[in-house]
Simulated assay, not measured.
Amino acid sequence: MKKIDNYVTKIVSGLPMEQVAKEEFREELTAHLTEHINELLIKGYSEDEAISYAIKSFGDHQKLNHEMKKSIFPFYKIVRYVWCTFLVTTFIWTLAYYWNEFYHRQMGDFFQEGGMLVFLMIAVILGICEVAYEAASKEYTTKWITNPWFFFLIPSLFITGLLSISFFLHPENYVDGLWLDLFVLPIGTIAHLFARGIFTLMFVNRKNKIKVNIRG
């Protein structure tokens, strides 16, 4: 039942749970729906009617998804966003500091004064990326599209590949460590993905099991 599978996928999409727990919850939801559909089939409903009634009785998938996220971890996205912004900024800033110390000691004042600008740039970029990811997760159910590593990393590598063309055309512009600028995007993306993973491990209750009572 593809319609049921898509419906359940949208409900569990983005829930702040360990993957194993999410799959168990997904199976539990599917079992409840299937049971309700079978009851309706026995009563004489057609398969399409039974599926439609069962889904309607469960409720809107977006509302269910939102309520579950709130019950598991209130303000989950906001806290994760602030956490990732802080860690990525710290990582990029540390990398830039040592790059500056090694190649351009005379630019120390510039990096100190530009700290807030770096933070704001990363905050804006991460915000846009997270909003785009949430929109894609709601729109598509294909796992490889909604996989964070694919969604965030592949575009960053593609953009870096395009920018790298200038390195081969004008290598003189990338002396004294300036070549590192070409890889800031994928480096920051990997830092972001690790920050997301660390956040999940540290703050999401790994043992949390959702028990949902659904009335048919």
Results as ranks from 00 to 15, higher is better:
residue 190 I to D: 07
residue 138 K to P: 05
residue 105 R to H: 08
residue 207 K to D: 13
residue 190 I to A: 11
residue 94 T to I: 14
residue 182 L to P: 01
residue 102 F to E: 13
residue 123 A to R: 00
residue 185 L to N: 01
residue 184 V to D: 00
residue 168 F to G: 04
residue 153 L to K: 07
residue 145 I to A: 02
residue 166 S to Q: 12
residue 93 W to L: 14
residue 180 L to G: 05
residue 197 G to P: 07
residue 180 L to Q: 06
residue 197 G to M: 08
residue 129 C to I: 14
residue 122 I to A: 14
residue 175 V to T: 13
residue 92 I to A: 08
residue 94 T to Y: 08
residue 174 Y to I: 01
residue 133 Y to A: 00
residue 102 F to G: 08
residue 164 S to A: 10
residue 206 R to E: 15
residue 156 S to G: 01
residue 101 E to W: 10
residue 194 F to R: 11
residue 112 Q to V: 03
residue 94 T to E: 08
residue 165 I to P: 01
residue 198 I to H: 02
residue 125 I to E: 09
residue 197 G to W: 08
residue 125 I to N: 08
residue 128 I to H: 01
residue 191 A to H: 05
residue 195 A to I: 06
residue 118 V to C: 11
residue 154 I to A: 15
residue 133 Y to R: 02
residue 98 Y to N: 09
residue 143 K to V: 15
residue 202 M to H: 10
residue 144 W to C: 02
residue 166 S to P: 05
residue 114 G to T: 13
residue 162 L to N: 05
residue 192 H to F: 15
residue 201 L to A: 14
residue 166 S to I: 10
residue 121 M to C: 12
residue 117 L to M: 15
residue 111 F to W: 13
residue 145 I to H: 04
residue 188 G to A: 11
residue 135 A to W: 15
residue 122 I to E: 08
residue 112 Q to R: 10
residue 148 P to H: 03
residue 185 L to G: 01
residue 125 I to R: 11
residue 149 W to P: 07
residue 191 A to N: 08
residue 116 M to C: 09
residue 201 L to V: 13
residue 185 L to D: 04
residue 173 N to V: 01
residue 114 G to L: 09
residue 102 F to H: 14
residue 94 T to N: 07
residue 173 N to Y: 11
residue 206 R to M: 10
residue 121 M to I: 13
residue 175 V to L: 12
residue 131 V to N: 03
residue 129 C to G: 08
residue 115 G to W: 03
residue 209 K to W: 12
residue 195 A to H: 05
residue 168 F to C: 02
residue 189 T to Q: 00
residue 119 F to W: 13
residue 103 Y to A: 05
residue 161 G to E: 03
